[in-house]
Amino acid sequence: MTRKQRRGVLIGTCLVVLGVAVGLVLYAMRDSIVFFYAPSDVAEMQMSPGQRFRLGGLVETSSVVRGEGTTVRFVITDGAKTLPVTYTGVLPDLFREGQGVIAEGTLEPDGVFHADNVLAKHDENYMPPEVAAKLKTQGVWRGEAGAAAPSATN
């Protein structure tokens, strides 16, 4: 093989691998990305049933109902709008009424959000930034919760 041919093989292989990678990334981008919405967004938009997305907000106080078996129903609110959610499984440790939560799943024709994954983040005072941002824009942000720190000096 001449020097030129060798270089050609090298560059050709690089281009093929890169091309395949770009194709895969673009394909995956179209199909496997999950958007994040608050109940108000969902009310505004026309969601097609079966479209996966993440729903974030606060768990509405006294809305949690244990159904038959391990199914749980609750309502997610962002202050303006609410959306009922049903989930089958074990809820995370920090799932509480009045706390921030993110549910992932689909909105079904019955108007109920069927979650197959519920995330509550780790700290009791912690709110997922997505939820906090949405709540701020909705005007129901309650400020940074948590103990006030003693005055700091150097």
Partner: peptide, 17 residues
């Protein structure tokens, strides 16, 4: 816009490579 790119994306791209 807020999105999350999770396991399905990486399974589709990383694994075949």
């Amino acid at each position: 816009e807020k999105i999350s790119v999770g396991a399905p994306f990486f399974n589709l791209t990383f694994v075949p490579l």
